[in-house]
């Protein structure tokens, strides 16, 4: 049976309205995309939507009590909440280098969680 799904592209401020048509899971057509990125995004949103995760982890001995971290690549959207919960239990020691791996292979996705800044050792507050 043919079905249509509507998405809004999140890749740039144009925010194209996309309409994907599929039949039994097979993508037939994507309409409304102004560029190829949007075309691809609609197919990914249908098959396996992914999001970049960003959150913070605790730091010991740093100039700030928290370190911002980000997934090095998008992970499946359905795993975002669990990834953030997992990272809430993590504590790292300062100093931390920009891009340092904080949690490898989050939830078996093959994607590393990395520090998104440099954080010097010191006294926070």
């Amino acid at each position: 049976m043919k079905k249509t799904h509507n998405y809004t592209c999140i890749n740039c401020p144009l925010s194209c309205s996309l309409e994907l048509t599929e039949e039994d899971g097979e993508v037939l057509e994507v309409r409304g995309a102004d560029c190829k990125v949007g075309q691809k995004y609609a197919v990914e949103e249908f098959r396996n939507p992914r999001r970049t995760v960003s959150t913070t982890v605790r730091v010991q001995g740093g100039v700030l009590p928290l370190l911002p971290v980000v997934s090095a690549a998008p992970i499946p959207k359905a795993l975002v909440r669990e990834a953030v919960r997992t990272l809430a239990a993590v504590t790292v020691e300062a100093p931390v280098a920009d891009g340092q791996v904080i949690y490898p292979d989050i939830l078996g996705t093959g994607v590393d969680i990395i520090a998104s800044r440099r954080l010097e050792a010191g006294v926070s507050g």
Binding site: T52, S54, P68, V70, S116, R117
Partner: peptide, 27 residues
Amino acid sequence: PQCIHDGFGSIVFDQVLTGPQYAQRFI
């Protein structure tokens, strides 16, 4: 540094960065 989400830098760096990452490059 407090804008920890991504979405920065697509024009200047042709890459999607978090706020802290964007700042770090200039720092």
